[in-house]
Design a protein around this nucleic acid. Structure first.
Length: 453
DNA sequence: TCATTTTGTCATCAA
DNA sequence: CATTGATGACAAAAT
């Protein structure tokens, strides 16, 4: 995405107008009153705004550009009869010209570059940019950071936009992107791995007979997945049925009648011991009954002689060992197998769901990161265009100065409508008749456009 | 009671 | 081949 945008930025720069439009209070734009006379309607839609700006720019600087919808060169030429025409042909005919944009970017409301500051490079403005950059882009971000922007500005002033482009955005972008994506992937992978490891660990603890040391947190570990998200993870670790799986509850099991009920006794939200002592045992039994999972009920009904927790969490070897100690009917064995399968799957499902939530969280984080990156790139683009605009104006004024000092053999100044300066490939500057300049301008004008299509 | 969320279960695949 | 974990889909349970 970033690459695309950067490319788009190089090729079509009409979007710059939008960018300038977006932050009306942009403190930076106030620093540059380059186009003070440019009429700006900030309330118009993006397209209108940009087109309006474009047409003005183009009319001033590149009347020869046919593609432009409103080449109002005729109307505006009178304002700048001499330099505007010459500038157009000149810049339009050179590759260098492509570097410079219309100086009046729409959004710079405070800018004051009017018709008297024609821009030879209006042709570069391309509406394609509008598709990629919109006010929305800027609206999304948390607003321009004046400090950052000014820093960027300074860099632009002292440095070339390209250097900044290459040194800044890619590194920061890649780093942030990499961190975010890697964090998501690594975190999820590590989480899952830790999940499995801790799970097996728990299992090991679990079947080490009567370890009463497991606490709730370890129980969480048993499930294996404990990512940092707290708000998101709504899994209830207090679930009695889950606790029943924990080995440390087994020892309560010799509560005769209810082998698997004891889980309830240890859980925090259960009735206090007083009720256990003095409360009716019936009620207690009912309560415990309700706390038991379906499989626990089934196991009790089938008189399975050991806890579901063991059935589920013992490793295969010990599990088979355990089974061999008892004379179990086929139905009992079948139920035990089901209990084991379901119990394991239950935990797997819990892990799976937590993992899914974690993934979603990470993706959300990634989205935020990418949005930040995008906003930053847009900011950088604005600064880039800003400096570009400045350079254009410099070149333009230089052009006018040079052209204005030229004299023919009779000591008379050249007419800007008949002659134009043109950069040669070797770096020299030639004074050529306008007609030639126009032709060359058209030739160069078409090449890039055709190439793009 | 109804809607929504959470949890359990099953089927299936892959390791 | 048996076991186990992951996961989608569905249903029961809980909120």
């Amino acid at each position: 995405m970033s690459i695309m945008e950067m490319q788009a930025m190089e090729v079509n720069t009409s979007a710059s107008e939008i960018l300038y439009n977006a932050p009306p209070g942009d403190p930076l734009s106030t620093n540059y009153s380059l186009a003070p006379n440019t009429p700006i309607n900030q309330n118009v839609s993006l397209h209108q705004a940009s087109l309006g700006g474009c047409s003005q720019d183009f009319s001033l600087f590149s009347p020869e550009v046919e593609s432009l919808p409103v080449a109002s060169s005729s109307t505006l030429l009178p304002l700048v009869p001499s330099n505007s025409t010459s500038l157009n042909s000149t810049f339009g005919s050179t590759n260098l010209a492509g570097l410079f944009f219309p100086s009046q970017l729409n959004g710079t409301a405070n800018d004051t570059s009017g018709p008297e500051l024609p821009d030879p490079l209006g042709g570069l403005l391309d509406e394609a940019m509008l598709d990629e950059i919109s006010l929305m882009d800027l609206a999304i971000e948390e607003g321009f950071n004046p400090v950052q922007a000014s820093q960027l500005e300074e860099e632009f002033d002292s440095d070339s936009g390209l250097s900044l482009d290459s040194s800044h955005s890619p590194s920061s972008l890649s780093s942030s992107e990499g961190s975010s994506s890697s964090s998501s992937s690594s975190s999820s992978s590590s989480a899952s791995s830790s999940a499995s490891s801790s799970f097996s660990e728990e299992g090991a603890v679990g079947y080490s007979s009567d370890s009463e040391t497991l606490d709730l947190e370890e129980a969480e570990g048993a499930v294996g997945y404990q990512p940092e998200y707290s708000k998101f993870c709504r899994m209830s670790y207090q679930d009695p049925s889950q606790l029943s799986c924990l080995p440390y509850l087994e020892h309560v099991g010799h509560n005769h009648t209810y082998n698997m009920a004891p889980s309830a006794l240890d859980s925090a939200d259960l009735p206090p011991p007083s009720t256990l002592k003095k409360g009716s045992k019936e009620k207690q039994a009912d309560f415990l009954d309700k706390q038991m999972s379906r499989d626990e009920h089934r196991a009790r009904a089938m008189k399975i002689p050991f806890t579901n927790d063991k059935i589920i969490n013992l490793p295969v070897e010990e599990f088979n060992e355990l089974l061999s100690k008892y004379q179990l009917s086929e139905a009992q064995l079948s139920l035990i197998r089901d209990i084991r399968r379901r119990g394991k799957n239950k935990m797997a499902a819990q892990n799976c769901r937590k993992r899914k939530l974690d993934t979603i969280l990470n993706l959300e984080r990634d989205v935020e990161d990418l949005q930040r990156d995008k906003a930053r790139l847009l900011r950088e683009k604005v600064e880039f265009l800003r400096s570009l605009r400045q350079m254009k104006q410099k070149v333009q004024s230089l052009y006018q100065e040079v052209f204005g000092r030229l004299r023919d053999e009779h000591g008379r100044p050249y007419s800007p409508s008949q002659y134009a300066l043109q950069y040669a490939g070797d770096g020299s500057v030639l004074l050529i008749p306008r007609t030639m300049a126009d032709q060359q301008a058209r030739r160069q004008e078409r090449k890039p456009k055709d190439r793009r299509k």
